[in-house]
Design a protein around this nucleic acid. Structure first.
Lengths: 206, 206
DNA sequence: CTCGTTACTGACAGTATTGTAGATAAGGCG
DNA sequence: CGCCTTATCTACAATACTGTCAGTAACGAG
């Protein structure tokens, strides 16, 4: 689009919050795609359509920007995960839909990649990963459903059975395509169903 | 250590192979610790005790160095994994020792971290991850041991049962400490034993 | 011992990236 | 409408990193 020569493009002025949000969005895209070190002021600024000192104006320093992005990304992951596990229906094949929901968050939405990138880069969250609280919720369900003459399973067993699919999904977010293409005719869905069945067997029998 | 003023330190001359190996070692340490982008000519050179043009002399460019490191690291991972799975004894609790061996390679030796770094950074290996061939080996064992009146399990089942612990170990190499401390009184060993038991159950019953 | 190959070096160039400083103008508010 | 706050800009400084170049010296071969 041609501009009158000698005249700069009309300067657009966002509210501080809008600008910060737009910048965080751009920075997060780069974070997910290529890791924290790929967050460069000039490129982020260009993507938003501003000059890089504007970014510094809003965040103070590159490091502060990165930390803001990390904090927001971890919050987003946490919220998305919570929503996922809560949205799973109470019905029969609860287990599979739960795995599907976690898969959606970690793999499809790319939160798993981001999380691994942050862990590797030393941006580990200070708070726990809340796997324990999730396991506690599942454990409560297991206790009220003693279908046969089972003795109550130890909490440890439930914890591990929650941890296992979580770890698997996490790796899938990075290596899933590669590793599933290699020997799985049914795609990621097949693996999830198999895993759901495995855990179901275990719960039903132990 | 003081040097005569005006005299540089006596220059040491390695064979080209020795120099290359030393440089690759230093670069690989940085790769494992902080990813491919952390491989910087000056720092690698300093760690080896040479000047950075020497590194360029041996490898041509930074990218060529990185690729050499990546190739060597992937070879090393592959060899270590093969050695691990082959060294597992044929005895009864073969499954648990197998998991222990894979854990040793991926988590203790840090190969899991490196692998994830490389995948995230776009240095995915062109060859497969050889999970399939491993699964085929396991599948062969399952067929010759039809303890009861089972029908032969589909290969897919074996493949998934190999894939699952592999993915879990991979994630553990990055988030293991964090996530195990959170709710596992028995440490990583406990998880592995639980997992071995889970798979054993599955194999024995299906 | 001499000589040639080449591992190695210091100095420099070029580029990218973060951060600073001062000026400018957009938009709200009296 | 006029003013003040501040989001935004251009221009520049400072540093870090990769890569080039010409020269030096270590070691093996003859």
């Amino acid at each position: 689009m041609p501009r009158s020569p000698g005249h700069a493009a009309p300067r657009k002025r966002r509210t501080a919050d809008e600008a910060r949000a737009a910048i965080l969005d751009a920075a997060e895209r780069r974070l997910v795609a290529s890791g924290p070190t790929a967050i460069r002021l000039q490129e982020v600024a260009a993507e938003v359509g501003v000059s890089h000192p504007t970014v510094l104006h809003h965040f103070g320093s590159r490091e502060a920007l990165v930390e803001a992005v990390v904090a927001r990304a971890l919050d987003s992951l946490h919220a998305d995960l919570m929503r996922a596990v809560q949205s799973a229906p109470e019905s029969e094949d609860r287990l599979e839909s739960l795995l599907d929901a976690v898969f959606e968050t970690l793999v499809t939405h790319g939160h798993g990649r981001t999380f691994l990138w942050l862990m590797l880069s030393g941006y580990a969250p200070k708070e726990d990963l809340r796997v324990r609280s999730l396991a506690e919720a599942v454990h409560a369900v297991r206790r009220v459903k003693p279908r046969k003459q089972k003795k109550a399973p130890p909490f440890e067993d439930t914890y591990y059975s929650v941890l296992l699919p979580a770890l698997a999904m996490l790796s899938m977010s990075v290596a899933g395509d590669k590793v599933l293409d290699e020997g799985a005719p049914l795609g990621p869905r097949g693996f999830r169903r198999w895993l759901a069945k495995l855990l179901h067997e275990h719960y039903d029998k132990d």
